[in-house]
Design a protein around this nucleic acid. Structure first.
Lengths: 121, 121
DNA sequence: GTATCGTACAACCAAATGGTTGTAGATCAG
DNA sequence: CTGATCTACAACCATTTGGTTGTACGATAC
């Protein structure tokens, strides 16, 4: 029962938990797509969906905690915008996974190549 | 209350829900990292963590449903491997978001450029 | 054969999630 | 000032999640 996780820094882990958790809902992904392309107030977003205003408000709060969007007060409205950095963090981890995969794939290729060399005359 | 979501195809949505949901847990991300780099049996994975075997088994099941790993029976063991395609699907959506963002950013740049032209003598 | 190992799965539990309604505080329009 | 709008937040509810223990079953070792 080794406790070592491959990933160090539990703080980052929590940030990643929130990031992926936030993206694990179709409505929230829809919100991210919309506010990445333009600006919306919370009520402007709420008008787009059949669920209640409070529900949309909660979704925006989840996205904000995950650093995927930012809110800024403008008069009595709260303007929601996409946060580029949050998206990049998620991409970076997936890129990292893919890098590991490619390294493994090339290692396998190397082994096969060695076999080929052995088979050569 | 417009019902239209930006993203079409609810089936893909469910797949993405599962994908990001699966990645929203540090233990599961750790498992993905490990089985992407090499092969592990379920009990081999379970030995790495302090939680029970059944818990790890459930995590692997979540990853399998999300198409992030595959299981293959070998003797009495079940070998877990990383699934490259699953990772790419997640990356593609994030790439898409980033593309929208860049389009918006360049649109803003264009507008600013127009202003600059107006200001020029 | 018997014992052991690796797995699957059910039943259970506490906590989190995604939704609702209702209430209350700011801000704007008339 | 009054009324409408936008937001925040609490309380509640059903379902899911992440964990546990216990049982059962096929494959392996001796």
């Amino acid at each position: 029962m080794v406790v070592d996780q491959l990933s160090r820094s539990p703080e980052k882990d929590v940030a990643l938990d929130r990031l992926f958790q936030a993206l694990a809902d179709a409505t929230r992904r829809d919100i991210v797509a919309r506010v990445t392309a333009g600006e919306y107030s919370v009520s402007g977003l709420a008008a787009l969906y059949t669920m209640s205003f409070a529900a949309v408000q909660k979704h925006v709060a989840v996205l904000e905690r995950a650093s995927l969007v930012t809110k800024e007060k403008r008069g009595r409205e709260q303007i929601v915008r996409g946060n580029h950095d949050g998206l990049q963090k998620a991409r970076h981890l997936l890129d990292h996974f893919e890098m590991i995969w490619r390294q493994r794939a090339s290692r396998i290729a190397d082994i096969l190549a060695e076999d080929d060399e052995r088979d050569l005359p």
